[in-house]
Amino acid sequence: MPSPSPQPVSALLAEWQAGDEEALRTLLPLVYNELRRLAHLRLRSERPGHTLESTALVHEAYVRLVKQGGGKFQNRAHFFAICAQLMRQILIEYARSRQAAKRDGGQKLTLIDSVALVKKSRSVDLLVLDQALDRLAKLDPQQSRIVELRFFGGLSIEETARVLEISPATVKRDWSTAKAWLHHEMRTAQHDT
């Protein structure tokens, strides 16, 4: 599969930043493909046992698409914000395929959040999180978005505030309360199933 030429991405980003919403619509599939391609490379390569970290992947995509393209697009946070949603989609796809593979008795994929010799690593079930985030979006769309940016995009409080054009204090409050809500929601959901 040929990789997308970096030049148009960079140009599209600049246009989008200048206020052209149409540019974003063209841009999204390109970034999405690049992220998928990188993820696929990592996850389906001949080098098993490698970890794929969501934010590291986004960073790599950023370097490839934006920095190498020599574009004028300077707003890392906005790029990461785009990627956050896409990474969520990609990771959920993988989680689904993993679940299917498990059912088919195929080779297993494991999600871990700590590289350590632990009997049972504490991990977040992405599919359960995904559903809980959808439910949160119905209560408070902004909070759901904040979680997406922070967790999948790796944005800091400040960056999230800039992207959403709200105050950092609001991000802090929404993040803190969203975590409590999701934590409770996911535990209840897991106990139910």
């Binding site: 970890t51 999600l111 934590h183």
Partner: peptide
């Protein structure tokens, strides 16, 4: 109170690390 209570165990690190995938392992 329910939400606070659920927060006392392990909430501090909940969602603080970005998600990772490990590819299929060499040995099953």
């Amino acid at each position: 109170e329910t939400l606070l209570g659920s927060g006392d165990e392990g909430l501090s690190r909940f969602l603080e690390n970005s998600p990772r995938e490990v590819t299929r392992t060499t040995l099953g």
